[in-house]
Simulated assay, not measured.
Amino acid sequence: MDLKMQGRVAVITGPAKGMGAAITRAFAAEGVDLALFGRDTDAIAPVAEEARAMGRRVEVVRCDVTDAAAVEREVGIVAATFGRIDILVNVAGGTGPIGKTGAETSPEEFDEIVSLNMGGSFHMIRAVAPVMQRQRYGKIVNVGGTFGMRGKAGRLAYSSSKWGLRGLTKSFALELGGDNINVNCVAPGMVDGPRFRTKVVPEMARRLGISEDEAAQRHADDYALKRVSTDEDIASATLFLASDLARQITGVDIPVDGGWAAL
């Protein structure tokens, strides 16, 4: 399907692997030129080359999204280089402590994940918004998580950061809507990939004394559609929200989880 995104310019954070890489490939396939932000530019290089092979213009930008001054500087350079920024996708994030109660989570652990998952998106939007306001056009998509919609024991810091990202999304949607800028949030559930296969599934298998295949199926059985999401599922939802097909959608959280958080 032609989403009529050819020639648009997108800034994507966290593009090196997993859903970030899938989103980058999906945007490149739709004809979008790219500025790829991350701390490890060597890790970004392979996906950048894939996008270039599709005929896209790609700039790889070394930037720590938790550093507000660095974000503002690099966004300014990207805007000058490309002449515009049409799309921002905030993928960069972390998991925080796993299996710790709130009382067991240290202030440092809490601050670190909130600074990355919320603060990083805040800095990026704050820097990109003036460019989009001058254009009177923009699409911003934040990648949240379903633990920010239902909560999760043992993941307090992560869950809190994703709940906060929802509030950030809705507030910016209200503030920027008059400038023809849409701000939305995609909330992945469990996503099939290396972490799921090498950490989540084996841990459940050990805990319950079952095979890894049985553990993977138990996860799938939690969802209405009886399957675990893929990186490409997240990329498709992100593409939709970044396209003009979603011109009248703003301030929403869309769970992409096979039917778990909303059911």
Score class of each variant (00 low, 15 high):
D2N: 15
A262T: 13
D244Q: 13
A68C: 10
V186P: 12
D33M: 02
I125T: 15
T81N: 11
D233C: 03
A43V: 05
G99S: 04
V91F: 07
E30F: 04
A29F: 10
Q217A: 08
M132T: 01
S121G: 14
T105Y: 04
V65D: 04
A224F: 08
Q135W: 08
D40K: 10
G178M: 13
D257G: 08
A261W: 14
G193M: 04
I125L: 12
S115V: 10
L208R: 13
M204I: 15
G55Q: 14
V128M: 11
D221V: 00
A262N: 14
A21F: 01
L34E: 05
A43Y: 07
R166V: 12
R62T: 15
A129S: 07
G154V: 13
T198W: 00
N117E: 00
G177T: 15
V141A: 06
F82D: 03
G189I: 14
V186N: 12
A51W: 08
G18R: 15
V71D: 02
A29K: 15
Q6C: 13
E232Q: 12
I85F: 00
N90T: 11
A48Y: 01
G138M: 01
N180P: 01
E112L: 11
L225E: 06
V128Q: 13
G259F: 02
T169C: 09
D257T: 13
N142V: 05
V141F: 08
M54P: 06
R8M: 10
R134I: 02
A262M: 11
T230M: 05
G31N: 05
P194H: 08
T41I: 07
N182A: 02
P194V: 07
P194Q: 10
L156K: 07
V256H: 14
N90H: 09
V58A: 09
K199T: 00
A69D: 15
G154M: 04
A45G: 01
G120S: 03
T146K: 03
K139W: 02
T13V: 05
G209V: 07
A16P: 11
D192V: 14
D222K: 15
T24G: 07
T105K: 08
D253T: 15
Q135K: 06
H219S: 04
V11E: 03
P15W: 12
P255L: 02
R197H: 15
D67C: 02
